[in-house]
């Protein structure tokens, strides 16, 4: 299996990532997920800052990809997470999986996102019309992880 992990301030191109993933000729399925900065329901979001723990973040993402490979037969895993200042509608995260069949690709993609949200050291700070706020961790993200344990 090939693993590609990047933590970067630059944007990523979904089409380029997809083209890389579909080069694996033994893989008949590619599943991709992209996470975006969304507006708030109760406040005006100007932008968001993504902070991370350099070094640990990359190691954590590789470890998550390897855990997915232990559960499913995967051809390739790409994980890209952006850091720094992002505006509404900008892309934050990309997870792409290539595998022989779709079931493994769908499951591995969800597994990686659930683990990433609970284990990878990133923190979001929202810059809103009412001030700056650190985003609180959600119990729903922890519950999502529990289904894999």
């Amino acid at each position: 299996m090939s693993v590609f992990v990047a933590v970067q301030s630059d944007d990523f191109c979904l089409a380029s990532e997809y083209d890389e993933l579909r080069r694996h000729s033994t893989c008949g399925a590619v599943v991709t997920f992209s996470g975006l900065v969304r507006e708030l329901s109760d406040n005006i979001l100007h932008s968001m800052t993504l902070e991370h723990y350099p070094g640990m973040t990359e190691q954590a993402l590789v470890a998550i990809a390897e855990q997915a490979q232990q559960r499913w037969q995967l051809g390739a895993v790409h994980i890209i997470h952006r850091v720094g200042r992002l505006k509404p509608n900008e892309q934050i995260v990309f997870v792409g999986i290539a595998s022989a069949h779709r079931a493994a690709a769908f499951a591995a993609c969800e597994f990686i996102m659930d683990y990433l949200k609970n284990r990878a050291p990133f923190w979001k700070k929202e810059h809103t019309a009412n001030g700056d706020y650190w985003v609180a961790a959600k119990a729903s993200d922890q519950h999502a992880l529990a289904r894999w344990e």
């Binding site: 996470g35 991370h52 070094g55 640990m56 995260v93 996102m113 284990r119 050291p121 990133f122 985003v135």
Partner: peptide, 28 residues
């Protein structure tokens, strides 16, 4: 995190280690 791995409070820390404390993560 001890040397960039999540650990419990019972983990042993030695001279030269990198130890980090942080709130629950909120990436993705």
């Amino acid at each position: 995190a001890l040397n960039q791995q999540l650990v419990p409070l019972s983990a042993t820390v030695q001279d030269g280690d990198e130890l980090a404390f942080f709130p629950p993560v909120t990436g993705g």
